[in-house]
Simulated scan of single mutants.
Amino acid sequence: MISCSSHGELIEELRDLVKRMERALGEENVVTLETLNSLGGQLRTNGQYEEAKEVHERCLAGRMKVLGEDHEHMLMTLNYLGIVYKRLGNHEKALEYYERALKGTRGCWGRFIRVRSAP
């Protein structure tokens, strides 16, 4: 259990936890990747977008390899990267990640999702 008194402490604890999990379970373990994704989320929340981008890109590479391109966790990471690139002001790259996430979501959940056409 992680017990922290500040957001900065939580980020440091998550960084340490990711390192320990990578050593114990491996970099491509699904639990390690989920923890890495959580670290990216905390970095995003704290406004540390450059580091969040790096962490989410590492997570994306691992999830793509382990889970495949249409897995819902991989699609969430694509969306998070879209958010990060938007916050960094790179709207073109953000749109690229959002579109990849949407395309994958349609592949994964296609029959459940109906996208309205623009009038």
Results as ranks from 00 to 15, higher is better:
W109L: 07
G26L: 04
S6V: 15
N29Q: 04
G107P: 00
K53R: 09
Y98N: 08
G40W: 01
E99L: 14
R63A: 11
A52L: 11
N79V: 12
G89E: 03
E99M: 12
G62P: 07
L14K: 10
I113F: 00
L67S: 09
Y98K: 10
L39A: 04
R111D: 03
R87S: 13
T77F: 04
E96I: 13
Y49P: 02
E28F: 01
M76Y: 04
Q42E: 15
E57M: 13
K93G: 01
T77C: 10
E96H: 11
K19Q: 06
Y97N: 05
L14W: 02
A61G: 01
L95V: 05
T45N: 15
M21K: 11
L33Y: 00
G82M: 15
G104A: 09
Y85T: 08
L14R: 12
N90K: 11
N46G: 13
W109D: 00
D70C: 09
M76F: 04
V84D: 12
K65I: 06
L25W: 00
V55A: 05
V84N: 12
D16S: 15
P119M: 08
K53V: 07
R116C: 05
R15V: 10
L78T: 03
A52E: 04
C108K: 08
M76R: 11
H56K: 06
A94R: 03
N37P: 05
N79R: 14
L36R: 12
L36S: 02
C108Q: 07
E96D: 10
E9L: 11
A101I: 13
S117D: 09
E34T: 14
R114D: 02
Y98H: 04
A94M: 05
C108L: 06
C4G: 13
R87I: 09
E96Y: 05
Y80F: 03
G41S: 15
K86E: 08
G89A: 04
M74P: 02
D70L: 09
E34R: 12
A118D: 01
V84A: 13
E57Y: 00
F112Q: 09
H56W: 02
D16N: 13
E69I: 10
L43R: 13
S6L: 14
K86S: 08
S117Q: 11
H56D: 08
P119Y: 01
H56Q: 09
V55H: 02
S5Y: 01
G62T: 07
H71C: 11
R114I: 10
K65M: 08
G62Q: 08
M64N: 05
V30P: 02
L14A: 06
G62Y: 00
A101D: 08
L10R: 15
L14M: 11
G68V: 05
E28Q: 05
E92W: 00
R15F: 03
A94S: 07
R63H: 02
R20Q: 05
Y80I: 14
T105E: 07
D70G: 06
N46E: 08
I113E: 01
K93H: 04
E96L: 12
R20T: 03
E27N: 04
Y85R: 11
E50R: 11
